[in-house]
Amino acid sequence: MSALCRRAAGGAQPRGMDISGNTIFIPGATSGIGLALAVALHDKGNTVIVGGRRTALLERVAAEHPGIHTVALDTDDPAGIQAAAATVLAAHPDLNVLVTMAGIMRVEDWHTPETFLDTAERTVTTNVLGPIRLIAAFVEHLQTRPDATIVTVSSGLAFAPLGATPTYNASKAAIHMLSESLRLQLADTPVRVVELEPPSVQTDLMPGQADNAAAMPLAEFVDEVMTLLDTQPDATEIQVERVKFLRYGEARGDYAQVVAAVNA
């Protein structure tokens, strides 16, 4: 058996971890965390398919990382998601892992609707409706696999907000609660739900973030994530050490101080 979180034969409880031998689809993986994770998983012996809307980036991924498959996909387009899902499943019927990686992060000014409403709506479409539509496109298939995993991607900002990005924070909080809820609903299936909770990572998600010394280096983040996947088979939330400051502020009783530090 080989899913990102393996289950005991005949039961619904995880019994170990195998991060090789899976077939994994990662939409939104043409750059940043998604691409770095795709490469790391491919290097571990998984079949990896990445999706993205920009053809040039897909061609670059295929050229620079032989063996990684690509498919054109716009996660803002419901029909496009269905078409891409059909393409992926036709070529890879043994698909057993979906990583809903696609997301955007934009600064907003909520003093007047003209300065935030369009951005807020686009953020909800990409960050909330995108993962919902992706899961809807694959969930029936995943239930036919003996071992399957849905990996959602929230953020440390789901638990402690950055004032400049209200809708991004809210969208990631929604993904956290969606993950919690799906885990309950799918407990009677072979499908596990695992939530990846990144801190600020050095990527191009926001202008200047790739060079931000306060953000976690991308390679360091992915290395720690891979170690956690390999060593914590029962984990429902994948948390590198840096994100725990944000994740557990309320539990520690220092939430106000965490929010102040995030917004300093």
Rank of each mutant, 00 (worst) to 15 (best):
M1Y: 05
S2T: 09
S2P: 12
A3L: 08
L4N: 06
R6N: 12
R7I: 11
G11P: 10
Q13Y: 00
G16R: 03
M17C: 05
D18Y: 00
I19P: 15
G21F: 01
N22R: 14
T30I: 12
S31W: 15
G32S: 08
L35Q: 05
V39N: 11
V39K: 09
L41F: 09
H42I: 07
D43R: 09
D43Q: 14
D43A: 14
N46S: 06
G51F: 04
G52S: 07
R53M: 06
R54C: 08
T55D: 02
A56C: 01
A62R: 10
E64M: 06
E64K: 11
P66Y: 14
I68S: 07
T70L: 05
A72M: 13
D74I: 05
T75S: 06
D76W: 03
P78D: 03
A83L: 09
A83G: 13
A84N: 09
A85L: 05
A86L: 11
A86N: 13
V88A: 07
L89Q: 12
A90N: 11
A91R: 11
A91F: 00
A91W: 04
H92S: 10
L98D: 10
G103F: 04
I104C: 08
V107Y: 13
W110C: 14
T112F: 06
P113D: 00
E114V: 09
T115A: 15
F116T: 07
L117M: 11
D118T: 12
T119Y: 10
A120F: 02
E121H: 12
E121S: 12
T123F: 02
V124Y: 11
V128T: 11
L129I: 03
L129F: 03
G130E: 01
G130P: 08
P131D: 03
I135C: 07
A136W: 00
A136T: 07
H141Q: 09
D147C: 14
A148S: 10
I150Y: 02
V151W: 10
S154L: 03
L157W: 10
L157V: 08
L157Q: 11
F159C: 04
F159P: 02
P161M: 02
A164K: 13
N169K: 00
A170H: 08
A170F: 03
S171K: 01
K172I: 01
A173V: 07
H176V: 08
H176P: 13
H176W: 11
L182Q: 06
Q185V: 11
Q185N: 11
L186A: 08
A187D: 12
A187R: 14
D188R: 06
D188V: 03
P190M: 10
V191N: 05
V191M: 05
V191G: 04
V191A: 02
E195R: 09
L196H: 03
L196N: 04
E197K: 09
E197G: 06
P198Q: 07
P198M: 14
S200G: 12
A214H: 13
A215Y: 03
M216W: 00
A219H: 00
V222Q: 00
V222K: 01
D223K: 08
L229V: 12
D230R: 14
Q232D: 07
E237K: 15
I238L: 15
I238H: 10
I238P: 10
I238C: 10
V240G: 13
E241N: 14
R242V: 14
R242D: 14
F245W: 14
L246A: 15
L246V: 15
A251V: 15
G253E: 08
V259S: 10
A260G: 11
V262F: 00
N263I: 15
N263A: 14
A264E: 13
